[in-house]
């Protein structure tokens, strides 16, 4: 039972990070209808930015306030990076075929990964140890041992989700985002500045990925330039699982994938862990292509 609760918490913690990344995929898909392959690399950059910030400030003692500051700074940098990628690589390709944009996205992803691996321009190929972000404490509940770090991930994630919900549903920009994802042409006809909203969407999604990067690094305290690929792919699977374009769906999908992966890791099948997510993806596309919370669209003929 203790074992189960422990794994459950680990699963939710991992799933929360997948959820943060998945939201970025799903938001961009909502407004532009393409898979932003470079999103997983924004996640990776996010953990490096966190690493640099922590190195730079040389916290003697990790503090709660310091951790939040690093997280906020990190999200801002990643938001900028997301907007930059969009402006430089995707904007010139508006209205081109999905394929062209998709391949460009793959190109951007390869570029970021390889720049990051480069010793001169980037961080170098070797993994780096990630210092503690928040003050950590072990809590004891009967047989169950919890570290505050494990709790921090779902708590921070919930906070970010609340802010996201407020932005999407209670602000003008959020309303414009939703309008754009319904119908881009109609949105521009009623005076919405599509380019500005698309940039905003990238900023929002990338900042969440950045937060995900820091939280991931905090729990698996080693970072490297290729760390984004697998979590990125799994988060994408989470977005599809929940119904791509659907925000609550992405969060739900993330948590589910995290749970499945954690529980599989505890069994003999643990080495197949990375294949499981794709097996889920293929199954979901076969039986419920619109995802758990998505609605199937009928193609107009």
């Amino acid at each position: 039972m203790t074992e189960f609760l422990q794994q459950l918490l680990n699963g939710i913690s991992l799933g929360a990070i997948y959820a943060l990344i998945a939201l970025g995929y799903t938001m961009v898909y909502g407004v532009l209808r393409f898979i932003n392959f470079a999103h997983s690399d924004v996640f990776m950059i996010g953990s490096y930015v966190g690493w640099f910030a922590l190195q730079r400030f040389q916290f003697q003692q990790p503090s709660f306030l310091g951790g939040i500051t690093v997280l906020t700074l990190d999200m801002a940098v990643c938001a900028l990076l997301g907007v930059l990628i969009e402006k430089l690589a995707y904007k010139p390709l508006r209205n081109r075929s999905t394929l062209t944009v998709l391949i460009t996205a793959i190109g951007v992803s390869l570029l970021i990964q390889n720049l990051a691996q480069n010793q001169k321009f980037g961080f170098g190929p070797n993994p780096k140890a990630f210092p503690p972000l928040f003050p950590s404490k072990q809590l004891q509940f009967g047989d169950l041992t919890l570290s505050t770090n494990q709790l921090a991930v779902p708590i921070v994630t919930l906070g970010l989700l609340a802010i996201l919900y407020w932005i999407v549903h209670c602000t003008r920009t959020g309303t414009a985002m939703r309008a754009l994802s319904f119908n881009a042409t109609a949105a521009s006809l009623v005076g919405i500045n599509n380019d500005r909203i698309i940039s905003f969407t990238f900023a929002l999604g990338s900042s969440l990925a950045g937060a995900g990067g820091v939280l991931y690094a905090m729990n698996y305290p080693s970072i490297d330039p290729l760390m984004g690929t697998m979590p990125g792919l799994k988060a994408f699977v989470a977005a599809v699982l929940g119904g791509i374009g659907n925000l609550p769906g992405a969060a739900l999908g993330g948590v589910l994938i995290g749970l499945v992966e954690t529980f599989v890791s505890g069994t003999r099948l643990s080495t197949f862990r990375d294949a499981i997510a794709f097996a889920i993806l293929i199954a979901i596309l076969l039986f419920r292509p619109a995802g758990l919370l998505g609605k199937l669209k009928v193609e107009k003929v």
Partner: peptide, 17 residues
């Protein structure tokens, strides 16, 4: 389109694993 791309990508990874 991109859904097929991601499924085939996933399949490639499964083969590797």
């Amino acid at each position: 389109g991109d859904y097929l791309a991601i499924v085939t990508l996933g399949f490639g990874e499964i083969i590797k694993v």
